[in-house]
Amino acid sequence: MEQQLLDRSENKCELCQSAVPVKLYEVLPQTSRTEDNCIMICDKCLGQVEKTEELDVKHLNCLRTSIWSAVPGVQVLTWRLLNRLKDESWATDCLDMMYMDDETLAWAKAGAEDEDSAVDDVHKDCNGALLEAGNSVVLIKTLDVKGSSLSAKLGTVVKNIRLVEDNTDQIEGKIEGQTIVILTKYVRKQS
């Protein structure tokens, strides 16, 4: 089946049409593996689909073309990604133009419900930039530390942050030798 899909896709990603190496991807949920519910996809698009990378609006402009695909699996992934980009006017326009039969739309929605129930474990700063353990951040507001007389001033650089695992709105960092919890909405990633 993989060879048939490579022939169908002309060895390109079926979402963005890039000629980088592609791999077989099964669009879930499904009962059996068929050509209709599997696609060839590049690593960049796969990261967007599986939420292992931050949504790249510039890259996902490719969805303007993939909405016209006749392959149900491509239609489903395109619909799901466009729904995650609803804040972008062009994505809403694409959703309005997109045609899917009732069965394919139900499949797309079923997978989207699964995506909604999955927690997006990504820490982001006040500008939406992805935060990772070890990053340095700058405070964008003076913060009074609860239970302490410490006041963390606007512009303070906090180096080597740690991510709070069960809460994507919080990070930990040291200020004046004291480890504190800081809300991500009050920090900007230092470049």
Rank of each mutant, 00 (worst) to 15 (best):
I161A: 12
G73R: 08
L63T: 02
K109W: 00
L105G: 02
G111I: 02
E54Y: 05
E14T: 12
D102A: 11
V164I: 08
I67E: 01
S148D: 07
L131K: 04
L150F: 01
E50I: 06
T104K: 00
E132I: 11
D116A: 11
G147V: 07
L60E: 13
L163A: 13
I171M: 09
E54C: 07
R188W: 00
L6A: 10
N135V: 07
S136W: 03
W79V: 07
V27T: 03
G73Y: 14
V157Q: 10
L105P: 00
K185F: 12
V22T: 13
I182R: 08
M1N: 13
L131R: 02
A133N: 10
Q17N: 14
T34V: 14
L139G: 01
E26C: 12
L130D: 11
Q75G: 04
C62E: 05
C45A: 13
T31N: 12
C94S: 06
K44P: 01
I175L: 15
S136I: 12
E53A: 05
Q75A: 12
C94W: 05
V49M: 01
N127T: 02
K86F: 04
T179E: 13
S18Y: 07
H123F: 08
Q170D: 01
L63P: 15
E165W: 03
S69R: 15
E35K: 04
G111S: 01
V145R: 10
K23R: 03
E35P: 15
S89K: 13
M98V: 11
H123W: 15
K44M: 10
Q190A: 01
D101N: 07
V119K: 09
H59M: 07
D87R: 09
G155N: 14
V158G: 01
V57C: 08
L55S: 03
Q17P: 02
R33S: 12
Q178N: 08
K86D: 13
V164R: 12
C62K: 11
E2Y: 14
V164W: 00
Q178R: 15
G111W: 01
E172H: 11
M97T: 14
Y25T: 12
V76G: 00
I41Q: 09
A152D: 09
Q3R: 14
G128V: 05
Y99N: 14
K174S: 12
I41D: 11
D101Y: 00
T78M: 09
A152V: 09
V57K: 01
R64V: 02
I182A: 04
W68C: 07
E176R: 04
D114S: 05
W107C: 06
T65E: 10
